[in-house]
Computed example of a mutant assay.
Amino acid sequence: MKVRKAVIPAAGLGTRMLPATKTVPKEMLPMVDKPVIQYIIEEAVASGIEDILIVTNRAKSAMDDYFDYYPELETRLLQAGKERELVEVRRAADLANIFYVRQKETKGLGHAISRARRFVGDEPFAVLLGDDIMRAEKPVTLQLVEAAEKYGASAVGVQRVATQAISRYSSVKVAPLEDRIFSVSDMNEKPTPQQMFSNYAILGRYVLTPDIFDILENVKPGYGGEIQLTDGLRELCQRNRMVAVDFEGRRYDTGNLCGFLEATIDFALENKATASWLRGFLKEKAEQLK
Rank of each mutant, 00 (worst) to 15 (best):
Q79G: 03
E178V: 02
L73Y: 15
T21C: 10
V36Q: 07
I215W: 03
G232K: 14
R91H: 03
R90Q: 01
D132P: 05
T23Q: 15
T106K: 05
A175M: 02
V45G: 07
G152Q: 04
V207M: 01
V120G: 01
E137S: 12
I113H: 04
M187W: 00
K22Q: 12
D33V: 11
A136S: 13
G280H: 08
D51S: 07
Q195H: 01
A44Y: 01
P139S: 04
I133T: 02
T23V: 09
E248L: 09
E287A: 14
P176F: 01
Q38K: 13
A62L: 06
L233R: 14
G225T: 05
N271T: 03
E85D: 14
V89S: 04
C237Q: 03
L208T: 00
A46W: 03
F197P: 00
Q288Y: 06
A6S: 07
Y70Q: 13
T192D: 15
R241D: 15
Y100H: 11
A147L: 08
V7D: 06
Q164V: 02
I40Q: 03
E123L: 04
V158W: 08
A175L: 14
I40H: 11
I202D: 00
D179K: 12
R251T: 10
L86Q: 02
L289G: 05
T230P: 04
E217M: 09
E287T: 10
